[in-house]
């Protein structure tokens, strides 16, 4: 083994064609990377830059010449000479159906505006399957002071499982349980979080794209009608606790911290925190009362 290969070899460029335009990207990039570089808006639900692609939602599929089926842009690596179509009838059809099928089974109302824009773009009409269809509707799980889990919103994107598992926290408090339409996210034997392995790092919440996982504070503010993202300001700072130096994003509304996240691209955290960094901010705003 040679030493100090840390500089990373300069990556070769690969030439491919997307929607008729030739483009060069670094070897090892995904089709999604290439699309983003070319400003082609590509819907994604289960992809996140700080997680290993699981390619399960299939909303990002594209047509690759020579491939019998569509391929997921988020995980498929580019190859020299690849010919990709991102807006063919087949692509539009599958993207539409994925969004429709999902939205017919779970409550996607708290997904980002971007997701709603994609639904509009592909003409997704979830109601067309009828109103007698099975859904994931179920009561909200509130079993601790920090998290709320509303699995009637869960699209099973696996992100929380990845964040709780090998991609970051390695605690594995939750996993995918059951199979087929009954597959769902759960602790072992559906045990309440306080009896599970959960360490409340909040990294699952940090990656959840649907609002299925939520900080209890946000849940309560939403219930009270006081949650207002337009009035929130996000400031980056460093966690006040241990010496690792995690970058925090403090979401502040009315001079009060309402949520804490971390930037996905920060070299220290990759977007992941621990319970202290995520929730340990209360002291700073309880001082008034104490003094």
């Amino acid at each position: 083994m040679s030493e100090a290969v840390f500089v990373g070899l300069p990556r070769r460029l690969v030439k491919l064609t997307i929607d008729g335009r030739e483009f060069e990207v670094a070897e090892g990039s995904t089709i999604l990377d290439a699309c983003r570089r070319m400003q082609i808006d590509t819907p994604t639900l289960c992809q996140l830059d700080n997680l290993t692609p699981v390619n399960v939602c299939r909303v990002c599929v594209v047509e690759v010449e020579g491939s019998r089926v569509l391929v997921p842009a988020c995980s498929r690596k580019v190859e020299a000479g690849m010919k990709v179509q991102t807006d063919s009838d087949r692509v539009r059809h599958s993207r539409r159906l994925v969004l429709e099928l999902l939205a017919s089974s779970v409550d996607m109302s708290l997904c980002s505006p971007q997701v709603h824009a994609w639904m509009g773009r592909y003409g997704a009409t979830p109601s067309r399957f009828g109103d007698q269809v099975a859904t994931a509707a179920q009561p909200v799980k509130i079993d601790n002071d920090l998290y709320v889990r509303d699995y009637s919103r869960c699209i099973l994107c696996y992100k929380c499982v990845e964040a709780c598992g090998v991609d970051a926290q390695n605690t594995f408090a939750i996993g995918v349980v059951g199979r087929g339409f009954d597959a769902h996210i759960s602790t072992e034997f559906d045990t309440p979080l306080p009896d599970s392995a959960c360490v409340y790092c909040g990294n699952c919440i940090g990656v959840c794209p649907t609002g299925a996982l939520m900080f209890k504070s946000e849940h309560e503010m939403r219930a009270a009608g006081t949650w207002d993202e337009s009035r929130q300001k996000v400031t980056e700072t460093v966690c006040p606790y241990c010496g690792v130096g995690c970058m925090l994003e403090l979401h502040v509304q009315d001079n009060s911290i309402v949520k804490v996240t971390s930037p996905l691209d920060h070299s220290v955290t990759s977007g992941h925190l621990c319970v202290k960094g995520r929730f340990g901010f209360e002291f700073v705003q309880r001082r008034e009362a104490k003094r």
Binding site: L101, L102, S105, F129, V133, G180, F181
Partner: peptide, 29 residues
């Protein structure tokens, strides 16, 4: 529907909807 692993959306929800729609077509609903 029983045997879908449940991983990907088209199959997980698709096999469920396929069954539901067939059922209601057969039931004449």
């Amino acid at each position: 529907r029983d045997e879908s692993c449940g991983q990907c959306v088209p199959c997980r929800v698709g096999t469920k909807r396929q069954e539901e729609i067939l059922e209601r077509m057969l039931g004449g609903r």
